[in-house]
Design a protein around this nucleic acid. Structure first.
Lengths: 224, 224
DNA sequence: CTACAGCTTATTGTATACAAATGCCATTCG
DNA sequence: CGAATGGCATTTGTATACAATAAGCTGTAG
């Protein structure tokens, strides 16, 4: 996409992610246009895109609202993500090239360094993790699968998952990656899929726990 | 969506499905606008939508082309569809209501009648089939899953699958539906998922066979 | 003859004005 | 007092003009 459209898309998306646009609140095209410094046209494009990605929802009369995620929605998204990533892992195990394997090993090394430091380098962990998974998707060689995964991976709360991990969880994540590498080395698709399923589902539960603690704290603050 | 937008979307989509817009050919917004009798604005909306559905593809400089499906692409789509429908079936088996079960049984009865007639009533078969599967999706109760399935189900060639079936295949389809019903009656998610996987994968192979015959015929015609 | 620069044309991107639809509120009628 | 109705305000949909970008072509220099 072109400049104005991209700008609008990224701007709106980040406003949703940051909570600047509150979940459930209505969003008007003109207001967004002003906020982004563009006209309504690119804003409309962005809203359509965000709608397919379920960041935005439209009511029966075409008005747009920031999607309000329930824990059930999240569970749903994670469940689908687990299934799709496992499928990708299986496909990848059967197709992966030496080069891709080497790159994955590299990214996983970066990831290890990020948590071996005296203080874990979370942004670096997140980034290595992202590239690691992207490489699997590349090896899976299915554009359609990649598109679908994007839809369930880049959800607001999911993005923050890694930040919620405690060090123990980051280490487990790394070990699961290690096991994935071995499954790939052996071209064992079912193994890779199983490890991936466990990897994503554990991530969900780690998140859900952090989230509920979060919610309780918030409730307590409200009560106070 | 509103009138003009919908009109444009349906019109363009059907032109792609019918082959009026040839796979691989470039499509220009203005030309489509004239064909649909609307301005470029709703056409642009439609193209974006068709792009996410992979009916249309855009090159690096934003020009649009009708997607050209390879057999591999189709296989890919079917593979994903099988996985997602199986997942839906499993979820549905665990959640389905008496009412939904009854409706499914009704649709399946319609479907049976359509192939029991002296001459099979293919359109009726297709329609009952569609509603049968839609009810499963409804029972699965995951909006996200429903969205994803739409993306892989309404593909050009897939739409025509049932037409390609010979009577034998239609009967098998019906029997698989019967078995699904029993799995649902017993709330056996894994059984339902397994039957569904087989159901979709058989459909793919039936299609692929018909398609390759088709292609050979076309080649022969070209050679003549 | 090739390659490259600069112009011309084709196509998409953006802004804006106006049309259509919807929601909202007040007023009236039962 | 409550429900229906009418009109006003808000918001989205569509058309169109213009801007920006990319593609293709043509002519010239090496």
């Amino acid at each position: 996409m072109s400049r104005a459209s991209d700008r609008a898309y990224n701007h709106i998306r980040s406003m949703i992610l940051s909570g600047e646009l509150q979940p459930g609140s209505q969003i008007r095209e003109e207001a967004l246009a002003e906020l982004c410094g563009v006209s309504r046209t690119p804003v409309r494009d962005s809203l359509r895109r965000l709608e397919t990605e379920m960041f935005v929802r439209r009511n029966e009369s075409q008005r747009s609202f920031v999607t309000n995620w329930s824990l059930d929605d999240l569970k749903d998204a994670f469940e689908l993500r687990a299934m799709l990533e496992a499928h990708a892992a299986k496909r990848a195990a059967l197709r992966i090239t030496r080069d891709q394997l080497a790159r994955m090993r590299g990214h996983n090394g970066q990831l290890k360094q990020a948590i071996d430091a005296s203080r874990p380098d979370v942004p670096r962990f997140i980034d290595s993790n992202r590239v690691f998974h992207a490489t699997i998707l590349e090896a899976a060689a299915s554009e359609r699968l990649a598109n679908m995964l994007m839809q369930v991976t880049e959800q607001p709360v999911i993005l923050r998952t890694a930040r919620q991990y405690d060090l123990e969880n980051l280490r487990r994540s790394h070990h699961e990656h290690d096991e994935l590498m071995i499954a790939f080395d052996n071209r064992d698709g079912d193994w890779a899929a199983a490890v991936m399923t466990a990897h994503i589902r554990r991530a969900f539960h780690a998140y859900a726990e952090a989230h509920s603690t979060d919610t309780e704290i918030r409730k307590a603050n409200l009560a106070a």
